[in-house]
Amino acid sequence: MRYQYKFQKLLELKESEKDKSLAAYQQSVSAFEQAAEKLYENMSKKELMEKSKEEKLRSGMSVQEMRHYQQLVIMKRHQMNEKQSDLTEKNIEFKKFEKMKEKQFEKFSLEHKAIEMKEMDDISISQFMFQGH
């Protein structure tokens, strides 16, 4: 007797959703890191420019550009947090279905064992009766 989980397709769907959510989260982390690196680069550039007034005049970074990168980092962090929340939710759903599968398999195993025990009892009774007792 082969075990067949009745929610297998749903479990696979939830696992697929979780995997997609993980990929989206990882992508958002990467985008956040890139934006943060760009902000860091620009802040480093600004520090260098502040050291030399003449250099600052030649290649100065505008306040507007600095705000742009700060906004970008904030936006990317927000996206990353949303993706992380979605990933957490998908993981919880997936774990619920995994737990249901485990419980159903445990029930299946107990029922299968009970059937085997009954069959063994029937065989024992048949042998006993066949031997003429």
Rank of each mutant, 00 (worst) to 15 (best):
S44H: 04
S85H: 15
M1S: 15
F108K: 06
Q79A: 12
K83Q: 11
D19W: 07
K46N: 05
S62C: 05
E102C: 10
I125M: 12
S44F: 06
K113A: 14
D122M: 15
I92S: 13
F108V: 04
K83A: 13
Q131S: 08
S85V: 08
K45T: 02
S109T: 15
M66F: 03
H133S: 09
Y40Q: 05
L110V: 12
F105E: 13
L48N: 06
S30K: 12
E82G: 08
K9E: 04
R77E: 11
M120W: 06
M120A: 08
H133I: 13
L39I: 02
E102N: 08
R67W: 09
F32Q: 09
S85I: 09
E119V: 14
E119P: 11
D122F: 13
Q127A: 12
F105R: 10
S62W: 00
A23Q: 10
R58Q: 07
V73W: 06
R77M: 14
R58F: 02
D86W: 09
G60R: 02
K56S: 10
L57Y: 04
M129K: 08
K107R: 13
K20A: 13
Y25P: 01
K95L: 11
K56D: 06
L13Y: 00
K101R: 08
Q4W: 08
E111G: 11
A23Y: 12
S124C: 07
K6Y: 04
K76A: 14
H112S: 12
A31R: 09
K95W: 06
M117Y: 05
A31S: 15
F7Q: 01
M100S: 06
L10G: 01
Q131I: 15
N91M: 08
Q127F: 05
D121P: 02
K96H: 05
A24H: 13
K46D: 04
K51P: 00
E111Y: 10
S85M: 08
K46G: 02
I115N: 15
K20D: 05
A36I: 03
E47K: 07
D86P: 07
E55N: 07
L48D: 08
M120N: 10
K46W: 03
K46L: 11
Q131L: 12
R58E: 10
L72F: 04
A35T: 00
K76N: 06
Q84R: 10
K96F: 02
F130S: 15
M100P: 03
S30P: 03
N81A: 14
D19T: 13
M100Y: 14
S28C: 14
L72A: 06
E47A: 07
S109F: 09
E82I: 15
E116W: 05
D86L: 14
S109C: 14
S85L: 11
A23E: 07
S30D: 13
S62F: 01
M120K: 11
A36T: 03
K45G: 02
A23V: 05
Y69A: 00
R2W: 14
K103A: 12
K76L: 05
K113W: 10
F97M: 00
F94C: 07
H78K: 15
N81P: 11
R2I: 15
M1A: 10
K9C: 02
K96V: 08
L87S: 06
N81G: 07
H68V: 04
D122A: 10
L48M: 12
K14W: 01
M43R: 04
L22Y: 06
K46F: 02
E50N: 07
L87G: 01
S85E: 14
I74K: 11
Y69N: 01
S30I: 10
M66E: 04
Q27G: 07
